[in-house]
Design a protein around this nucleic acid. Sequence first.
DNA 1: ATGCCCCCGTCCCGGGGA
Length: 256
Amino acid sequence: MRIASWNVNSIKARLEHVLSYCQNTSTDVLLLQELKTTDENFPTSSFNNIGWHVAKHGQKAYNGVAIVSKKNIEVTQVGLPDNEKDEQARYIEAQIEDIRLASIYLPNGNPSPGPKFEYKLEWMNRLYNRAKKLFYDEIPVVLGGDFNVIPQPIDCYDPTAWQEDALYRKETREKFYAICNVGYLDALRQINPHGAHYTFWDYQRGAWQKDNGIRIDHFLLSPEAANKLVDCQVDKEPRGLERASDHTPIWCDLSE
DNA sequence: ATGCCCCCGTCCCGGGGA
């Protein structure tokens, strides 16, 4: 099963790119982030028309996550538990065959310090708790999406410039490591121990042309899923399209 | 030191992104 993840920066603006990606790659399941639209306005029929299923958790203008799949989707969780006041659509989880998948849009957290950074850390605490719960279920789990975390210096074109940024601050990386240390594998780094494998290039300052990227979209695999890991790569091609998202897809192949 | 670019909706500006 090939699972891909893509922050599309508006599903409506990127619909043709996404449909083309579904039809012209080997992807079986695609995790989407930053839909920037409500459930009512999500283009469900466009996916149904190419034979794909849809599970979505959207909101007006901001955030929004979805799972689209060739195979049947059974939704297991909408929104992260343990904070009823949180109205931001950033988590959806589903069962597809024997794999539990979550599409994650972790808060940006800038500026930091400040309330937005506090929200990011609080959200990461709840993700940690959910990841732990799923870990103890002893099933193949794939946590995929835009984590808004630069794990290590190798994952950034200029780590010193990002030292105080919410994506790279010590507190952010330590919480990310805490989730990994529950027993989740960073699939991209497992397959590609060396070299830059960026997933995001800013629209500004010619970042794409200069390859000033960062790796912030990740797949974290439970042991049962990691044992099935065959390959994991970043697909840079969609970032070079006209009217591209500022993120590009990452994918992993799990054996049956 | 700041903004650059791109998306959205309150729609020609401001908020948010990273």
